[in-house]
Simulated assay, not measured.
Amino acid sequence: MRVSVGKWTKHKLMLENERLASFLPDTQYLNRTSLNTMLDKYNQIMVKPCNGFQGRGIIQISSLSNEQFVLHIERSETLINGKENIYDYLKENHFPRNRHRYIVQQRIPLATINNNPFDVRVMVQRKKDSLEWAVTGKLARVAANNFIVTNAAKAILSVENAIEISLVNNENIKDIVTDLEEVSLLIAGQLANSYTKKRVYGIDLGIDTEGKVWIIEANLTPAVSMFKLLNDGSYETIKSYKRG
Rank of each mutant, 00 (worst) to 15 (best):
S166H: 10
I58S: 00
D129A: 07
G189P: 14
A162E: 15
K127P: 15
Q60Y: 06
N146M: 09
D175I: 08
R101V: 13
A188W: 03
G189L: 07
S62E: 14
A162S: 11
N116S: 09
I165Q: 06
I108L: 01
K127V: 13
M123A: 05
P117W: 05
Q190H: 07
A134K: 05
I176Q: 03
N85A: 08
H72K: 04
Y102E: 14
R97A: 10
S184M: 03
N146L: 10
A192K: 09
A134R: 02
F118V: 14
G137C: 08
D119Y: 00
A152F: 13
T112F: 02
L90N: 04
P109D: 07
V120H: 01
L180M: 01
T112H: 06
I176R: 02
Y87F: 04
I163V: 11
R101S: 13
L180G: 00
E84R: 00
E84P: 09
E92I: 11
Q190R: 06
L131A: 11
L180N: 02
L110F: 03
T112S: 07
L157H: 10
S65V: 13
I59D: 10
P117Q: 06
I61H: 00
V142M: 05
I173M: 06
F69G: 01
V135G: 05
I187T: 05
E92Q: 13
K138L: 15
N115E: 12
V104K: 00
F147N: 10
V159I: 12
S62D: 14
N81Y: 08
K127T: 13
Q68E: 14
V183F: 00
N116Y: 05
H94M: 14
S62M: 10
I108W: 00
I173W: 08
I73R: 03
E84C: 02
